[in-house]
């Protein structure tokens, strides 16, 4: 296998981030420490499942904006209903997320709508629902035992980060071993061809959006449990990092590429970046800026126009050398 390829890109970026931070740290051990790993894993616990769901929609060449709204909504639902039985609250939250994704998926496939428009409506609706359910208040969750359990350290892990890692592993295996993974890549890589070959495109697309909703909801609910609180605002700051993580993780905007492990590496890279910058004493906005810059760079590199520009440049230089030659 080639060392530099689309497949290895996320892991190389992760490695490069660690190296750069370590070099800046100059061996003081602030960056290369258990604390960095722990906080990167905590970042993964929150963002991993959301990025995973989002990357599934990007794999089939769609984009689910509503993950941000579902994430917040699920936290509120879980805290509201989970007072007596946390399991019930969690189930209700995940179900709500899945239902939201299912409905949006149906609209997108049945009406052949662009997913951006539909999920924009979904985003606004789920944010609104969260406000209505909570009465525009911050909610507190009484079950402190659960909150403590979810944040309890098990070595470098917490139950939450273990869940996120387990989900990533499960999806990685499912997409590899089951034909679903193959069919999703086919849909994202050439939807017409997939359809002609007999792939059940519409059903799989609905499944993808349902999964995306459920994953965002699970992550949001667990975060709210561990923080012992939920509020309709403030939880919605996941869209930018989730998109960045997916793209850094090797998922292409043009569909058909990306793996759960790559996306996990993408999230970890952002987590390491944040934890590392913190450890180095960089101001909090340094993380925002570097993330924005990287995302912008990838958007530019992925742009369809860049190839045309490149070709034109090549032709220009070639014709120039030709006119000079004789």
């Amino acid at each position: 296998m080639k060392i530099f390829s689309q497949k290895t890109r996320p892991y190389l970026i992760l490695l490069a981030t660690v190296l750069v931070l370590a070099v800046i740290d100059r061996g003081r051990g602030n960056v290369l420490s258990g604390a960095t790993v722990f906080s990167a894993l905590q970042y993964l616990a929150t963002l991993g499942p959301v990025a995973l769901g989002l990357s599934l929609t990007m794999l089939v060449r769609e984009f689910d904006l509503s993950v941000a709204g579902v994430f917040g909504l699920a936290g509120c639902v879980a805290v509201l209903l989970g007072g007596d039985s946390p399991a019930l609250g969690l189930a209700a939250a995940v179900l709500a997320g899945a239902a939201s994704g299912f409905i949006q998926g149906l609209i997108i496939t049945r009406l052949q709508m662009p997913s951006i428009g539909v999920t924009l409506g979904g985003l606004l609706t789920t944010i609104g629902l969260a406000y209505v359910l909570t009465g525009n208040q911050s909610l507190t969750f009484d079950n402190m035992d659960l909150a403590l359990f979810l944040s309890a350290r098990i070595g470098l892990f917490t139950p939450r980060s273990i869940v996120a890692l387990a989900l990533a592993a499960a999806f990685a295996m499912a997409l590899y071993w089951l034909w679903i993974g193959r069919d999703l890549i086919a849909i994202g890589s050439d939807r017409r061809a997939a359809h002609t070959a007999g792939v059940r495109v519409d059903a799989l697309m609905v499944l993808v959006f349902t999964t995306s909703g459920a994953l965002a909801a699970l992550s949001g609910a667990l975060l709210s449990y561990s923080l012992a609180s939920a509020s309709p605002s403030g939880l919605s700051e996941v869209l930018v990092p989730a998109t960045a993580a997916a793209i850094l993780g090797g998922v292409s905007l043009s569909g058909g590429t990306g793996t759960p492990l790559g996306v996990t590496a993408g999230v970890l890279m952002l987590g390491v970046l944040r934890a590392g910058l913190n450890a180095l004493g960089a101001p909090p906005f340094a993380h925002d800026m570097s993330m924005g810059a990287v995302l912008l760079a990838v958007a530019i590199l992925d742009a369809p126009g860049i190839r045309a520009h490149f070709e034109r440049l090549q032709t220009l230089t070639r014709s120039r050398t030709e006119t000079q030659a004789p």
């Binding site: 034909w179 086919a186 007999g198 058909g256």
Partner: peptide, 19 residues
């Protein structure tokens, strides 16, 4: 217009969509 998915392997394409 062929109905192959370019991002998939030859093997996966051969069985793609077979119920």
């Amino acid at each position: 217009e062929l109905s192959l998915a370019p991002q998939l392997s030859v093997l996966d394409n051969i069985w793609l969509g077979d119920r």
